[in-house]
């Protein structure tokens, strides 16, 4: 004969809400959530890098004969400009070297390198430069980079939406599991109710059990996600420079978050069911 249930489990929930199905489903949800988090982090890093790097820079070609140093000082006063530097011949030659070879003998136009406070200032700054330095040509390579940045932001938003969807699905799965547990222990719940147990006491027994299973499942899911995220980070490293910074805190927070969702879902499902009793 099996050993009698432990007294901490008067509802017998170790049997009624057991097995691998609930932890496995929560693990799958946690895995998806972890990947969504990693994706959101990668998209954020890409957008940040693009917005703060190439997109926020522009090259200004001045009219031949114009001194780039005072022009750069003038440009630096424009709102939205973080820095404006006159490019000397050596730097220009170095930049052109991959395409033209030794360009030191060529007539090179005076150039200014402008760094913006933010990529969104590009149009205003370009307009200011056009008014300030007539005939100057502004090379806005930031436009396509800004489009890539917008794409990264969209990916990030989608990742957050996926995370919300996964949260909703997890809630639904936990509610179904709790209802199955209630159905399996209907008589026991009724007896406890008739002996004077409060709704809160009965609901907390369910909540503890379901939260524990959800935490176990989420731990497995997060652990499974780690190698995938490392691989994702490695693949993204050429684009991200330093590679993907792992969102450790958010990943670890998935476990208590799953437990909390489970706790409140079970609590409300059981309380709702108990309202049928007088």
């Amino acid at each position: 004969m099996a050993k009698p249930a432990r007294v901490r489990d008067p509802l017998g929930l170790r049997r009624a809400v057991s097995g691998w199905l609930l932890p496995a489903l929560v693990a799958a949800m946690a895995l998806l959530a972890a990947i969504a988090l990693g994706g959101a982090e990668a998209a954020e890093a890409l957008a940040r890098r693009w917005e703060g790097g190439a997109a926020a820079a522009m090259l200004v070609q001045l009219q031949p004969g114009l001194d780039p140093v005072p022009a750069a000082e003038q440009v630096a006063t424009l709102p939205g400009v973080a820095e404006a530097i006159a490019m000397d011949r050596e730097r220009l030659s170095a930049l052109l070297h991959p395409w033209l070879g030794d360009a030191s003998g060529l007539p090179l136009p005076p150039m200014i390198e402008v760094r913006l406070t933010h990529v969104r200032e590009a149009d205003i700054v370009a307009q200011g430069i056009a008014e300030m330095l007539p005939g100057a040509q502004v090379e806005q390579h930031g436009v396509w980079v800004a489009r890539l940045s917008a794409l990264a932001r969209s990916l990030q938003a989608m990742a957050w939406m996926t995370l919300a969807l996964v949260g909703g699905l997890a809630t639904a799965i936990l509610a179904v599991a709790t209802r199955a547990g209630i159905a399996a222990r209907r008589d026991t719940i009724t007896i406890l109710h008739e002996l004077g147990a409060t709704d809160g006491t009965i609901a907390r027994h369910f909540a503890k059990r379901v939260a524990w299973l959800a935490a176990c499942g989420a731990s497995i899911g997060v652990a499974e996600a780690l190698p995938l995220l490392f691989a994702l980070g490695r693949m993204a490293s050429p684009l991200l420079g330093d590679g993907l910074e792992m969102p450790w805190l958010a990943l670890l927070a998935l476990i208590p978050a799953a437990a909390l969702i489970a706790w409140f879902t079970a609590l409300s499902a059981v309380r709702m069911w108990l309202k049928r009793l007088p």
């Binding site: 009698p4 008067p10 049997r15 026991t188 002996l195 004077g196």
Partner: peptide, 24 residues
Amino acid sequence: PGLRRRIGIVFQDFRLLPHLSVLE
């Protein structure tokens, strides 16, 4: 619930919890 705790009931069909020991 507080009132129910002051009432003892012997059910016709006993209604003992099968997963608990007699003592529990």
